[in-house]
Design a protein around this nucleic acid. Structure first.
Length: 590
RNA sequence: CGGGGAGUGGCGCAGUGGUAGCGUUCCUGCUUUGGGUGCAGGAGGUCGGGGGUUCAAAUCCCCCCUCCCCGACCA
């Protein structure tokens, strides 16, 4: 393959586009790979499309290698299947909806669980047909509230989505493991570093799920992992399970007693007062925020329009993490509890809410879920449900009983690893893949079952697995660039070798042409900068911006029978003889 | 959706009521040819959209759209 810059549909930019912030967006636009075409939508130019296809092909090859078969669905789909699974409502504003000329509802698919389930139902009806894993590489549509960062979060993007179908849970586990392995191979080939983290399944439903995150600061996901990888634990913050003892040994705490604590609607004010008031001071040490039990009220809004209050109790040194809370209450959305809501619930005294009125059996009737650190036997200072008063020595299990636990408290760096107890660290990552054990949710909703060996109908159990293909292009760019431009791994690069003709000397041009002819004959993909009247400086800069892994300069060395070979990533240059150049470069490119 | 910033030629920017400018890109000619050559001439803009105020609006007022950042949202 030989592409000539003299005719390539390309214009590089001399300056960074002002609306691009993250490196991948900035450099892909500047290098002439993509152009913004719509809010959250991009046009791929020849160089970009070439990289995109390389990535797509690697994904495809690895799926095929694992024995998964490719199919292809429309992106434009009718409402009914999504109605059957409840996702027409659950997806909310994020779903692109439209009507045909008869007024029938359609959607642009955000993902295809329903259609795959129906397709298998359409064709298969026996356990003998299973297991089955099929996939597609398709354009997906999600009406994101805020598209951002170029290709990293668009409203139209390309995704490889696979679905597995098994007769039982053991089969699902095998299919899941097969996908997990295929994903590891895929990301290894793409040159993408990744961390596999435990995740929550969110709107997808189902049980076990893991995310593949490329650990990069520009990523939108926050995850924790065991510092120095002591035990290998890693999880999305949403999925972190706090490790606590079941209960504390029964303490000989005095009976709970209410105290006057005027003007202490905040934890800080309360702790400060408790430490300064002689009658309230603690003998052995100062009170700290972690001694208090903070009760946060929120309103849960469900997709059907109903709403319901919830109180989350947690140690006063932590805030509620909205992402973690929403992951727990999904598909409900969390809204702040406003003054008018307080007016409707007079038993809740803002700033002084305590457990005695909470719980579905309490006077307020509001569900009360607590952080797992609030274990039976733990002792707290908390609101007395009276303005300016708090209760001290309130013991969980003795003086109050919550309705249950909830993982909604912030995770802090240094918190103990749930697995081994060593400190956790917090990092950011780009979600490049996600694998789910869906279970039977979709098969049940859409009636996908097969006959087993005994002639009995068995509901099929499913998994779903996604790789963001267009996002992977951006993620790869993010992992490999410098102040001069992009720097692609060879397998995804738009070419293997970028040949620059440095001078206008006939001998140089002839040498470059002959070299390129030899290279393409050897199966090397070549980009040739044969632009006449363009100064060498411009060509060098463009070559570095475009980021092909090997740059060859055919210039004044030709007089001595040599050319220069430069590694884009390391910057290492070496002069090699023109005579052996094809063999040398072909070996370099494998 | 909340907070902040911004929309002027392909790209980067100036322009606070009076003839739309600069740099770059692009075209022509000469020049230069190993790190974004130099000179000269030229092309390219309904100033995000709509309404309003005014003799006159890129500029002032109102509404909307879009982009960027933070948060919320988000397989």
């Amino acid at each position: 393959m030989l592409q000539r810059l003299s005719t390539l549909f390309l214009r590089t930019l001399r300056e960074d586009p002002s609306d691009a912030e993250v490196p991948s967006h900035r450099l892909l636009v500047r290098g002439g790979y993509i152009r913004r075409a719509a809010p959250g939508g991009f046009t791929w130019l020849p160089l970009g499309w070439s990289v995109y296809r390389n990535v797509e092909n690697i994904v495809r090859e690895e799926m095929n290698r694992a024995g998964f078969q490719e199919v292809h669905f429309p992106a434009l789909l009718p409402r009914e299947p999504y109605e059957a699974t409840g996702r027409w409502a659950d997806y909310g504003d994020n779903l692109f909806r439209l009507k045909d000329r008869r007024g029938n509802d359609f959607l642009l698919a955000p993902t295809h669980e329903e259609m795959f389930t129906l397709l298998v139902k359409d064709l298969y009806s026996s356990y003998k047909d299973l297991p089955l894993s099929i996939y597609q590489i398709q354009t997906k549509y999600r009406d994101e509230a805020r598209p951002r960062a170029g290709l990293l979060r668009g409203r139209e993007f390309s995704m490889k989505d696979s679905y597995s179908f098994d007769i039982d849970d053991a089969g699902l586990q095998r299919s899941y493991d097969a996908h997990r392995e295929a994903y590891q191979r895929t990301f290894d080939r793409l040159g993408l570093p990744y961390v596999i983290v435990s995740a929550v399944s969110g709107a997808m439903g189902g049980s076990a799920s893991e995310e593949f995150l490329a650990p990069l600061e520009v990523g939108e996901d926050t995850f924790v992992r065991c510092t120095d990888n002591v035990c290998g634990y890693a999880a999305n913050t949403e999925a972190v399970q706090v490790r606590v003892r079941e209960s504390l040994p029964s303490v000989d705490a005095p009976a709970a007693h209410a105290e006057n604590t005027p003007n202490t609607p905040s934890i800080n004010a309360l702790v400060s007062l408790m430490n300064h008031e002689p009658g309230l001071r603690r003998a052995d040490r100062d009170w700290v925020a972690g001694d208090t039990l903070k009760n946060v009220v929120v309103m849960l809004r469900y997709p059907d329009g109903t709403s319901q209050p919830l109180v989350v109790g947690l140690p006063g040194d932590r805030e509620v993490d909205m992402k973690r809370l929403e992951a727990q209450v999904s598909p409900a959305e969390v809204e702040p509890f406003g003054d008018e809501d307080f007016a409707k619930h007079p038993s809740l005294v803002k700033g002084y809410i305590g457990p005695s009125v909470l719980g579905i059996h309490g006077t307020s009737g509001i569900r009360y879920l607590v952080d797992p650190r609030v274990v039976p036997g733990s002792r707290w200072i908390t609101g007395a449900n009276e303005h300016g008063k708090h209760v001290v020595d309130l013991v969980c299990g003795r003086d109050f009983t919550p309705d249950g636990n909830i993982e909604a408290a912030e995770v802090h760096a240094g918190d103990p690893c749930p697995n081994c107890g060593s400190a956790l660290e917090i990092a950011r990552g780009i979600e490049i893949g996600h694998i789910f054990q869906l279970g039977r949710k979709y098969a049940e909703a859409l009636g996908l079952s097969v006959l087993d060996q005994n002639g009995k109908q068995v509901v099929v159990t499913m998994g779903s697995y996604g790789i963001g293909v267009s996002r992977a292009v951006a993620a790869i760019a993010e992992t490999c660039y410098d102040d001069k431009g992009l720097c692609w791994p060879r397998e995804v690069a738009p070419a293997d070798v970028h040949v620059v003709i440095a001078g206008k000397d006939e001998a140089q041009i002839a040498a470059a042409e002959s070299l390129c002819h030899g290279l393409t004959g050897a199966g090397v993909r070549v980009l040739l900068d044969d632009r006449a009247g363009v100064s060498p400086g411009v060509k060098f800069n463009d070559a570095e911006l475009i980021g092909v892994p090997t740059i060859v300069v055919v210039g004044r060395g030709v007089a001595n029978g040599t050319i220069e070979v430069k590694d884009r990533k390391t910057g290492v240059k070496e002069d090699i003889s023109l005579a052996g150049a094809v063999a040398h470069l072909a070996a370099l490119c494998q």
